[in-house]
Design a protein around this nucleic acid. Structure first.
Length: 589
RNA sequence: GCGCCCGUAGCUCAGUCGGAUAGAGCACAGGAUUCCUAAUCCUGGGGUCAGAGGUUCAAAUCCUCUCGGGCGCACCA
C-alpha cells in the first residue's frame, strides 16, 4: 500500500474515529478543514496535521491537549518513529525509513502508472478546447489552449476521470460566409482570372489556394457564372471541410486528437437551439425588454430596441443577455446555450471550457446559462469551469516578434512547432499558469541550459539513462528493468539525500490529485523541474564523495539499490512528461 | 462607468484545502571538473507578498476599500 493512504487523510481520520469511539471526541465533528501535508520545514517531520487546531474549539479542548490525544493513537503504528506536537498544535509525524524504501519498491512495480489515481471514480468530464473558428490555420494562441486542454485532459484521466475531448466548430456564422466568398475568389483565380488583392474583410491567406484548385479540378467552371445564392452553400461546405482538415493536421502536429467534433450547424438543424430556448421559456426565464446602453463606451449605432432577453442576472450575471438578433436569427449565445445543454444531456455534469482570455467577459453568462438549464434536473446541477488562457508574447532573442499579415511575416502555430519541435512546444506551454501571460522566445526555448525547464528535465532523464547504460555492462540489461530492480535491497540507500529524493517521488500521486482537482496542469511542470533538481543535486554529490556515486565499484548490492533509485526517478519523470504528451529522451544531442 | 484576471527578490515566476522562519531560476559575488555528460552542482547577499482595514489559533492565500497594469462590455463569433 502506498504511503499516501495510511499516512494521508485516511490515516488521520482513522485516528480521530478511534478518539470518538473512546469518548474523547464528540461524534458530530466535521473533518472538512483538516489538512494533511508535507511540511516545508525539515525539522517538522514527514507529515504535518492541523487537526488539533481545527477541532479544538468545537470539541471544547485545548489544541495541544487534543493534539497529544491524537498523537497517542498515531504512535501505536510501528511505521511511525516519532510524533511531535509543535507550534500552536501541529502534529508532526516522522515515518520510519522502511516506509520510504517500500515506496520505492512500489514505484518500480507500478512503473509509469505510479501516480495514477481512482479519485475521479470514472466520473465523466467534458473538456472543450481549441474550438478555433474554421477560417484558417491555428495561430500560436490556439496552440496554448490546445496544449493546456490536452494536458488537463490527460491529467484528469490519470486522476481517474473519464474524459471526453471535444471541439466546438463554429460553422454557422457570418465569418463562414466571408470564408466561402474568399474561396470563390480563389476558385476564379484557379480558373485563370486575375483577382487582384483580396478585398477588405475577406481572408487573404494563401491557404485557400490549394482547396480552390482542387475544387476547380473537381467541379470545373460550373460555379463561375452562377449567382452567389447558388454557390454559397456548396462553397461553405467545401471551405469548412478544407479548414477542418487544416486544423486537424495542426492538432496532429501537437499529438492531439479529439474524441468529438460538434458542429454549430448541427445544433441549429436538429432543433436543439429551439428546444433549449423553449426550455428556458418554460422556466419563465425569457422576456422581452430593452437593455441600457453600456456606460462609458456607447456604440455609435446604439438605439433602444426591444429584444428577447434571458434572465441571466438571476444566476449571477451582470445584465440580462439577448438571445435573438434584430433580424430574427439566434445570437451566438443561444446556440452556445443549446450546446452546453446538449453536453449535459449527453451525461456531462462536469464541463470544462478552455478559452482565450479575450473571452473572459463571456464566462458569467455561460455559467449562468448552465445553472439555469440544469437546476432541478434529475442529473443534478451542472458545473461549468472556464479556464482562460492568456496571450503569448512571441519573441526572438529577447525582442518582441512583430507580426502583421500584410508584411507577410505572420507566424502560425505550425511554423513554430516545426521550428522548435512538438515536445518543446507542449512542455513550454505548461511552464506558466494559464492565466499568466507567457513569453515564448523562439531561441531560448531550445537553449540547453538550466533556465530552460524542458531541457533541464530531459537532461536529468538522459543522465539516468547514461548511468543505466554503464551499469548494464556489469549487470546486464535484464537485471536493470523496473521489475528486476524492485527486488533490490532499498535499505542500502542510507544517505539522507537519497531518502529525500524518494520522498520527492512519493509526492507525485499527491501532485496528480491536487493538480487535477484544481484543473492546473502547470503544477506538473513545476514538480518535474523540482524532481530533476533533486536528481542533479544527488548526481553532483558523487563528485565530492566517491561513495555517493551511483555505480559503486565492489558493492553490487548498493549499486543495485541506487539503480533502483534512479530508475524510479526516470519512471516518475516519464509519468509526468506523459501528461504533456512528451517523450523522455535517453540521450541529449 | 461596470465586470473579470493580475500585482510576491533588480528581472522572469512558483507558493497545495488558509499553516510554522514566503521559495526557485536568471542576474550579481565566491567555489567544485584526474570521476558515470561541468549542458551540472554547492555557498552567499537580496522581500513593507502594491497599500489600508477586517475575519481567526493562523492570511501572500478569504472579505471590503484604495492605487497600479491587462482584457472585455446590445444585435460579432
Amino acid at each position: 500500500m502506498s504511503w499516501n493512504k495510511p499516512y494521508g487523510r485516511d490515516g488521520i481520520v482513522a485516528a480521530l474515529d478511534a478518539l470518538v469511539a473512546d469518548g474523547t471526541l464528540p461524534g458530530d465533528l466535521s473533518y472538512e478543514r483538516i489538512t494533511v501535508e508535507t511540511p516545508r520545514e525539515e525539522g517538522h517531520g514527514h507529515v504535518a496535521i492541523n487537526a488539533a487546531m481545527v477541532l479544538a474549539k468545537p470539541a471544547g479542548l485545548k489544541p495541544r491537549d487534543l493534539a497529544e490525544a491524537i498523537a497517542e493513537k498515531l504512535r501505536s503504528d510501528n511505521a511511525v518513529t516519532k510524533v511531535e506536537i509543535a507550534g500552536p498544535g501541529f502534529i508532526n509525524i516522522t515515518l520510519s525509513d522502511n516506509v520510504w524504501f517500500n515506496e520505492l519498491t512500489q514505484i518500480l512495480q507500478a512503473g509509469t502508472d505510479y501516480g495514477s489515481s481512482d479519485m475521479g471514480a470514472g466520473e465523466p468530464v467534458n473538456v472543450e478546447f481549441v474550438s478555433a473558428n474554421p477560417t484558417g490555420p491555428m495561430h500560436v494562441g490556439h496552440g496554448r489552449g490546445a496544449a493546456f486542454g490536452e494536458s488537463l485532459s490527460t491529467l484528469l484521466t490519470k486522476a481517474g476521470y473519464s474524459v471526453t475531448r471535444e471541439y466546438w466548430v463554429n460553422d454557422a456564422g457570418a465569418q463562414i460566409d466571408k470564408l466561402s466568398q474568399s474561396l470563390h475568389l480563389r476558385y476564379r483565380e484557379a480558373l485563370g482570372e486575375d483577382i487582384g488583392e483580396m478585398p477588405e474583410g475577406l481572408y487573404p491567406g494563401d491557404y485557400l489556394v490549394g482547396p480552390a484548385k482542387e475544387l476547380a479540378d473537381k467541379d470545373g467552371d460550373q460555379w463561375l457564372a452562377k449567382d452567389e445564392s447558388e454557390w454559397l452553400g456548396v462553397f461553405r461546405r467545401y471551405a469548412i471541410d478544407a479548414m477542418m482538415d487544416l486544423i486537424r493536421a495542426d492538432l496532429e502536429r501537437l499529438g492531439i486528437r479529439f474524441d468529438v467534433f460538434t458542429f454549430e450547424s448541427s445544433m441549429v438543424d436538429s432543433g436543439k437551439v429551439q428546444a433549449a430556448l423553449d426550455s428556458l421559456t418554460d422556466k419563465g426565464l425569457l422576456y422581452t425588454g430593452v437593455l441600457e446602453p453600456p456606460k462609458g463606451k456607447k456604440p455609435d449605432d446604439w438605439e433602444p430596441r426591444p429584444q428577447t432577453l434571458f434572465r441571466s442576472t438571476d444566476f449571477g450575471d451582470d445584465v440580462d443577455r439577448p438571445l435573438i438578433k434584430s433580424d430574427g436569427s439566434w445570437t451566438y449565445f443561444s446556440t452556445d446555450i443549446a450546446y452546453h445543454w446538449d453536453k449535459y444531456q449527453r451525461g456531462f455534469k462536469t464541463q470544462i471550457n478552455i478559452w482565450g482570455a479575450d473571452h473572459g467577459g463571456y464566462v458569467k453568462r455561460m455559467q449562468a446559462a448552465v445553472k439555469a438549464m440544469t437546476t432541478g434536473e434529475s442529473g443534478g446541477e451542472g458545473d461549468l469551469d472556464v479556464k482562460l488562457c492568456q496571450m503569448i508574447n512571441l519573441m526572438e532573442n529577447g525582442e518582441q516578434f512583430k507580426m502583421s499579415k500584410r508584411a507577410g511575416n505572420f507566424i502560425t502555430m505550425a511554423d513554430v512547432v516545426d521550428k522548435v519541435g512538438k515536445d518543446v512546444f507542449r512542455f513550454f506551454m505548461m511552464t506558466r499558469k494559464n492565466d499568466a501571460q507567457l513569453d515564448f522566445d523562439l531561441q531560448k526555448v531550445t537553449e540547453q541550459s538550466r533556465d530552460n525547464p524542458v531541457f533541464y528535465v530531459q537532461y536529468a532523464n538522459a543522465r539516468i539513462c547514461s548511468v543505466l547504460r554503464h551499469a548494464a555492462e556489469t549487470f546486464g540489461e535484464d537485471a536493470l528493468t523496473p521489475e528486476a530492480l524492485s527486488g533490490a535491497d532499498m535499505s542500502r540507500l542510507e544517505d539522507e539525500a537519497e531518502k529525500v529524493l524518494i520522498m520527492q517521488m512519493a509526492n507525485w500521486p499527491r501532485i496528480v490529485e491536487s493538480a487535477a482537482l484544481a484543473h492546473e496542469p502547470h503544477r506538473v511542470a513545476f514538480y518535474l523541474n523540482d524532481l530533476a533538481a533533486g536528481f542533479h543535486g544527488l548526481w553532483n554529490l558523487g563528485k565530492d564523495n566517491t561513495q555517493l556515486r551511483f555505480i559503486v565499484e565492489g558493492d553490487q548490492e548498493l549499486t543495485r539499490a541506487r539503480m533502483a533509485l534512479i530508475r524510479g526517478v526516470s519512471l516518475v519523470i516519464a509519468s509526468g512528461l506523459d501528461v504533456f504528451g512528451v517523450t523522455p529522451v535517453e540521450e541529449m544531442r
